[in-house]
Design a protein around this nucleic acid. Structure first.
Length: 117
RNA sequence: ACGGAGGGCCUGCCUGUCGCGCCCCUGCAAGGGGGUGAGGAAAGUCCGGACAGGACAGGGCGCCCGGCUGCGGAAAGCGCAGGGAGGAGCAAUCUUCCGGAGGCCGUAACAGAAAAGAACCGCCGCCUUGUGCGGCAAGGGUGAAAACGCGGGGCAAGAGCCCACGACGGCAGUCGGCGACGCCUGCCGGGUACGGCACCCGGGCCUGCAAGACCAAAUAUACCGGCAGAUGAGGGCGGCCCGCCCGAUGCCGGGGGGUAGGUUGCGCCAGAUAAAUGGCAGGCUCAAACACAGAAUCCGGCUUACGGCCCUCCGUAACA
RNA sequence: UGAGGUAUGGUGUAACGGCUAGCACUAGGGAUUUUGGUUCCCUCAGUAGAGGUUCGAAUCCUCUUACCUCAA
């Protein structure tokens, strides 16, 4: 782990059918700007996240990838806002590819909201 | 210069910083170092394969797809070059069609007499002068399409009826070409268009990596072994015992198929598996660093989307 | 990722390649009625988009777009 902690290795990403199913079943939902966020207290040691961009919103894979990368980048630079381990799912919920600043703010707000709960 | 036509090429690189996948090295570990990391279309999934499973004695018919020629190719609704007929454009050039049949079958709405052996108007002849009989297909009109064009002969009037020239189709021959075919000569032919059928040549079994292969919890269980069991195993009521009720299987071990899940298929310079190539700042080469766009089994094409440059050619205008 | 299908007025659906694309409901107008309903009459509005074949295309062919189904 680097000095700054602004990393996002594989162990901090949510994967696996059962883990995702558990989150979707038991998680709480909040909305923050262009994002819908599903989260629950983490069962693993580290905070784990995943990002979802529905195909209904963007038909082109390039746009979906761009949005996912911006969300991940925003989380990576702001992950220090969280205290204890949480499982989080970010679902993009806007018909347009928004600029990085907007997504950055939405992710930041969501993280603050979660850490207060 | 503007507009257009054809062809070719490219669609980055570097630095700083924060990050990601895979591989290698190092380290007990945390980590550190190095390498590498999307496209010309990766797309649409329109064709063809490889590969995999299923089916399958051998052969024929049928069915489906393709159909000018030559070369390339494993093959292709493939590429390159060329041929014929038609169409678009002032032009450069582009584009559509193409084996085969004098036979058979089907279709040709409306209009029109008639849409395939035609006669409404019309033209001509005869007499018994009529709502007659017969001949003709040049002219008119309908239609998307009407029986080859034009000139002459011929005739009662006419007509490829005959003749010359021409167009079209077929056959034969000389020459040129690997060939499709072309040029020339001679002979023959005359009801159109479209589609299908005999036939000829080539290809085609079906399903697709969510194919397929391997490992393998929990629960139930084929089968095998051991133990207990109508002298009551086990279960229900209950915290336990007694009691009451139901009662022939119960427990343990092995074990096959198989589900969740995992591995493989899956790439020895991309190789993930909820899925990596990015963000920010700046620079360089420069024709430009923008547009279209993100690998999931892999190849060969086609099609569609889209930025830029170069070369050749055509047209218009201006200048020399 | 692979395989397949659909698109016709606002909605649901018909139409051997051939009349002005038919029908029902809805909507608008009118008639009947004291008013409303029922009933009757009239009207509006459509072949998803772009090319091609053809004398002629909703229909046949090609491409594009949108939507749907199936295969863990």
């Amino acid at each position: 782990m680097s000095v700054f902690g602004h990393t996002l290795p594989k162990s901090e990403r949510l994967s696996g059918r059962s883990a995702i199913g558990e989150l979707l079943r038991e998680g709480r939902y909040i909305t923050s700007g262009c994002l819908k966020v599903c989260f629950k207290a983490g069962s693993a040691d580290a905070t784990r996240i995943m990002v979802s961009v529905p195909k209904k919103l963007f038909k082109r894979a390039v746009k979906r990838n761009a949005v996912k990368r911006r969300v991940r980048e925003s989380y990576r630079t702001q992950k220090s806002l969280l205290g204890r381990p949480v499982d989080i799912l970010f679902i993009y919920n806007n018909a347009e590819v928004l600029p990085s600043e907007v997504i950055f703010k939405a992710v930041g707000d969501a993280l603050k909201h979660i850490s207060e709960k």
